[in-house]
Computed example of a mutant assay.
Amino acid sequence: MAEQDEPQNNNQQAQRPDTVSALERGIAVLRCFDEQHRQLTPTELARLTGIPRPTVTRLATTLVTLGFMTQEPGGERFMLGPGVVSLARVFLSGLDVRAVARPRMQALAEAVGGAVYLAVPDGLDMVLIEACRPRSTMLTARLDVGSRAPMANSALGRAYLYALPAPEREALIESLRLARGSDWPSLEGGLRRALDEAARLGYCSSAGEFHREINSVSVPLIGPNGEVMALNCGGPAFVFTEPVLRDSVAPGLIELARVLAADIGGSVPPPRS
């Protein structure tokens, strides 16, 4: 029997008969958690997902039973559970590119004194699957495996978008526009400039647009099966100035992408102009 508090979800299911709406909503609950939202109440989950509070509470309770979430003793806040770690380990262990990339990423991090990341898309974000930092300095962004970067204003996301076929890229940009709402006018200009930059130079940049006072550049990397990833390198803006990124970091990152592509049987999208 259809639930009385979920007419909008039933409509979605009717439009997409090949999906299971209850599973979609459960995954939506899990996606609410990130570095800034480690503990969430049912009310907060309902606000973030748009799912009615009674339904989101049932979904969260089911996820607790399955081990994917936990609930604070005597309280109402939910957290991610150990079940997600097991799935993440299986996923990461299957990414052979990490093992190939890690030593080369670490070498670049040491050479330029900045953090080097490898990321894959997840919804409208990029998720880090490998992170290397120079041992000689603490002046790097403290992102790690599993951290997320917004696609619209991070260099990683912009490099990923650049590598997509034009129709797919524009469809995803439209999804970003709808998702970011009133923030979109302040984001679109930087995104379009970065895509033009990639077409001319082969890399995208982000100057303080994702993390304040952090500048970085990214290069797309296409795997042997056509999967699109992105490599990133950068650090504090007062060290990684525009000339440093252009003259020192970007050439090293592009060369890293080319070497990795050769190692894994992939490719690097060339500049288009």
Results as ranks from 00 to 15, higher is better:
residue 50 G to P: 14
residue 23 L to D: 07
residue 195 L to R: 07
residue 187 L to K: 03
residue 107 A to P: 04
residue 236 P to E: 11
residue 264 I to A: 00
residue 6 E to Y: 04
residue 170 E to C: 06
residue 219 V to I: 11
residue 201 L to Q: 06
residue 59 L to C: 02
residue 62 T to K: 11
residue 68 F to R: 04
residue 105 M to N: 01
residue 249 V to Q: 04
residue 31 R to P: 00
residue 123 G to L: 10
residue 46 A to T: 06
residue 176 L to S: 10
residue 109 A to C: 09
residue 173 I to K: 08
residue 250 A to Y: 05
residue 99 A to N: 10
residue 67 G to L: 06
residue 201 L to H: 09
residue 45 L to D: 08
residue 205 S to F: 00
residue 147 S to H: 15
residue 253 L to V: 07
residue 162 Y to C: 01
residue 53 R to K: 15
residue 22 A to L: 14
residue 139 L to H: 14
residue 114 G to S: 02
residue 94 G to H: 05
residue 119 A to S: 15
residue 55 T to A: 15
residue 258 R to M: 05
residue 69 M to N: 05
residue 11 N to A: 13
residue 102 R to D: 14
residue 258 R to Y: 00
residue 189 G to E: 13
residue 134 P to V: 07
residue 268 V to Q: 01
residue 46 A to L: 07
residue 179 A to T: 04
residue 117 Y to Q: 08
residue 182 S to V: 14
residue 43 T to L: 11
residue 253 L to W: 05
residue 48 L to V: 03
residue 49 T to A: 12
residue 228 V to L: 06
residue 49 T to H: 11
residue 111 A to T: 12
residue 30 L to K: 05
residue 34 D to A: 05
residue 11 N to Q: 12
residue 81 G to R: 09
residue 124 L to P: 07
residue 231 L to N: 01
residue 12 Q to K: 10
residue 194 A to E: 08
residue 177 R to T: 13
residue 84 V to D: 04
residue 257 A to K: 06
residue 131 A to H: 11
residue 228 V to Y: 01
residue 8 Q to N: 10
residue 54 P to C: 13
residue 190 G to D: 11
residue 173 I to T: 11
residue 53 R to W: 02
residue 251 P to A: 09
residue 263 D to S: 15
residue 145 V to G: 10
residue 91 F to N: 02
residue 69 M to S: 05
residue 124 L to T: 06
residue 104 R to E: 10
residue 123 G to S: 08
residue 52 P to T: 09
residue 97 V to C: 12
residue 178 L to C: 03
residue 205 S to R: 13
residue 112 V to N: 03
residue 55 T to C: 11
residue 42 P to F: 14
residue 182 S to I: 12
residue 225 N to P: 00
residue 131 A to L: 02
residue 94 G to C: 01
residue 205 S to D: 03
residue 138 M to T: 12
residue 174 E to D: 12
residue 233 C to S: 13
residue 226 G to L: 07
residue 242 E to N: 01
residue 84 V to Q: 04
residue 146 G to T: 08
residue 4 Q to T: 13
residue 180 R to N: 14
residue 190 G to E: 11
residue 5 D to E: 14
residue 267 S to K: 01
residue 232 N to S: 15
residue 182 S to Q: 13
residue 190 G to F: 06
residue 168 E to N: 06
residue 155 A to V: 05
residue 221 L to F: 03
residue 127 V to S: 02
residue 73 P to D: 12
residue 21 S to N: 06
residue 49 T to G: 11
residue 212 R to W: 02
residue 68 F to K: 03
residue 152 A to R: 03
residue 117 Y to T: 00
residue 120 V to K: 08
residue 110 E to T: 12
residue 204 C to S: 13
residue 78 F to T: 01
residue 230 A to R: 01
residue 94 G to V: 01
residue 103 P to Y: 06
residue 222 I to F: 00
residue 204 C to D: 06
residue 131 A to S: 15
residue 62 T to N: 12
residue 268 V to A: 07
residue 266 G to W: 07
residue 239 V to Q: 08
residue 3 E to G: 03
residue 46 A to N: 05
residue 149 A to Q: 14
residue 86 S to R: 07
residue 273 S to T: 09
residue 8 Q to R: 13
residue 135 R to C: 01
residue 240 F to Q: 03
residue 145 V to T: 13
residue 230 A to H: 00
residue 98 R to I: 15
residue 85 V to D: 10
residue 201 L to T: 05
residue 61 T to F: 06
residue 261 A to K: 00
residue 257 A to R: 04
residue 25 R to Y: 05
residue 265 G to S: 00
residue 130 E to C: 12
